[in-house]
């Protein structure tokens, strides 16, 4: 209990309920997500939506780290650790997938617990650069640990988690379930008192520490949680693709997850999901023209970063402010970072 409080305790909570608009949007989104594989049965669109589910887990878990003020360029490495763990345990040790999945969460979380306290002492660009290098190291481990990982060719003919998941629709619903659980967890976490402390320490670390928030400990815990969640994506993705190769887990691929968050405005889980939809769906739809699709991707990144570093959230806010004629306060994490 606090010593000698100048103000006494009271009662009656002013609870804020989600607005009707938000509920309506959630209900609509839920209906679309549930109906998607039925409407597009047997179509490539089911596969794309499944990918989006998996990347939503990656992007939202990465946001847990970003919100503490650290832009990690090695998140995909942890996704890879989860993926390899799951595949190796299922294929070489004969584990059932549900146990392998638990290991696929535990392994990156453990790696995060070891490396996190070291990396998180760095801030700003140094953290970005070191995580970039760390991501590269992990990729090299995947390449060089041939007996386990199959080297740069990777591991082939990965079975689906269960035979019934050979059906893309079934895989979709399983991925959807995990995405809802993981993303829901992230949203819930960030809306709790922990989330308030996290947003506070990004905006004023000293001030927050003085309010009794164990800043460093929270950063480490968030890093570990994020790494653990990323393993879910790793396992789901590897078993869906039938193959796992080191090329999918380098720093450039981690950047992809960062960009999803950038497009979404960095401090918004829904934004990260929109970013994932954009970055996964768009290239996949241009599949026949792989090179052009990558060129467009690059150009879009340039244009977005040059013109609206706050991402789509900033774009929406600008549109809204134009509509209502009010000046919107666009203090995105990106803009703040850019000024330093």
């Amino acid at each position: 209990m606090s010593p000698q409080a100048p103000l006494s305790l009271g009662a009656a909570p002013p609870r804020t309920m989600p607005g009707a608009g938000l509920l309506a949007i959630s209900a609509l989104a839920g209906a679309v997500l549930l109906a998607w594989p039925i409407v597009f049965q047997g179509s490539f669109l089911v596969y794309i939506a499944t990918l989006v589910m998996q990347f939503s887990i990656g992007a939202c878990s990465l946001q847990l780290i970003i919100r503490t003020g650290h832009i990690s360029m090695s998140h995909q490495a942890f996704v890879g650790i989860g993926g390899y763990t799951s595949v190796i345990l299922v294929m070489k040790a004969g584990w059932a997938w549900h146990f392998a999945l638990l290991a696929a969460i535990a392994a990156p979380a453990l790696a995060g617990a070891v490396i996190g306290p070291i990396l998180l002492r760095l801030t700003g660009k140094y953290f970005v650069l070191v995580t970039f290098l760390f991501g590269e190291i992990v990729r090299l481990v995947f390449i060089d640990w041939q007996s386990m990982t199959g080297g740069s060719n990777g591991i082939f003919e990965i079975p689906k988690p269960y035979p019934w998941m050979n059906d893309p629709t079934a895989y979709y619903y399983v991925s959807l379930g995990f995405a809802v659980a993981c993303v829901g967890f992230c949203i819930r976490l960030m809306r709790s008192e922990i989330g308030r402390a996290i947003d506070a320490m990004r905006e004023g670390p000293n001030l927050t520490e003085c309010a009794g928030v164990p800043v460093f400990r929270i950063k480490v815990v968030m890093f570990i949680i994020a790494c653990g969640l990323s393993g879910v994506m790793g396992s789901l993705n590897a078993h869906m693709n039938n193959v796992i190769t080191p090329g999918n887990y380098g720093p450039m691929e981690s950047l992809n997850l960062v960009v999803m968050n950038v497009l979404g405005g960095m401090t918004n889980m829904a934004g990260a999901i929109i970013g994932a939809v954009f970055l996964i769906a768009l290239p996949e739809l241009l599949r026949g023209y792989v090179e052009w699709q990558r060129v467009f991707y690059g150009i879009i990144l340039i244009v977005v970063m040059a013109s609206m570093p706050g991402g789509m959230v900033e774009l929406l806010a600008r549109l809204r402010s134009r509509l209502t004629g009010r000046e919107a306060h666009l203090a995105s994490a990106v803009a703040a970072e850019g000024r330093t």
Partner: peptide, 26 residues
Amino acid sequence: RGAFLHLYPGFFDALISSAKARAMRA
């Protein structure tokens, strides 16, 4: 944000927004 110490009910209470968490918030 300054009142963190008197708002934070513990990790799981915060996560599920338990009765304890709500009382502290109020």
